[in-house]
């Protein structure tokens, strides 16, 4: 049996337009569901995410680690791709006996980064979410849709946006973002 190396959905596809669209390298992602106020759940999340617990609707980021608040009973924890196995074992130990579940979803997701001054405009073409500075300040985790598929969007600055979507729709989302970022299509609203 030979080891099959993991690859991203689009092999790191890139597009340069009014913003730069780039598929991100493999990223470890763990979904943690449970009562977010419970100590074992918090400890399991912080132990792997390495950042503070985010407030409701927010994401705490530090380098390639993060904890994102996905719903009142769900967190998405980001860590290095090859650490996920070890991380899950550690989390299961911390969660032992509590009503919570941690699952590796790294290979079920694709991640994109948008870079450029027009990121809010580009995203606003595709989502009904309020992409204004007040509606989506950096650090806010907004689960919404991009055209016809579910996605989660957050900004880490005024010129950088990140997107997580299902891996099965990665080519569709990359196509959407590339089309919305075509040269000459700047809206200049935000």
């Amino acid at each position: 049996m030979s080891e099959i190396a993991s690859v991203t959905a689009l092999n790191g596809a890139r597009y340069d337009g009014i913003v730069e669209v780039a598929e991100m390298p493999l990223q470890g992602m763990i979904t943690l569901r449970g009562k977010l106020g419970a100590a074992p759940v918090k400890n399991a999340a912080i132990g792997i995410g390495g950042v503070d617990m985010p407030d409701d609707g927010m994401i705490s980021v530090q380098g390639d680690r993060a904890i994102a608040w996905m719903s009142p009973d769900e967190l998405l924890i980001f860590c290095a791709y090859d650490e996920v196995g070890v991380a899950l074992t550690a989390m299961e130990r911390t969660l032992d006996g509590s009503f919570a579940m941690a699952v590796d979803v790294s290979d079920a997701r694709a991640m994109f980064r948008l870079e450029g001054a027009a990121v809010r405009d580009v995203l606003a073409k595709l989502t009904p979410a309020d992409m204004s500075v007040q509606g989506c300040p950096p650090g806010r985790m907004r689960r919404t849709r991009l055209a016809q598929v579910a996605a989660a969007i957050w900004l880490t600055g005024e010129t950088t946006a990140h997107i997580v979507c299902f891996r099965s729709v990665a080519p569709y989302v990359f196509g959407l973002l590339s089309t919305a970022a075509q040269p000459g299509s700047d809206v200049g609203y935000y």
Partner: peptide
């Protein structure tokens, strides 16, 4: 009322 997001009809 759970996540506080002002969601458009098409997100629901």
């Amino acid at each position: 009322p759970y996540c506080g997001v002002a969601a458009d009809e098409t997100e629901l």
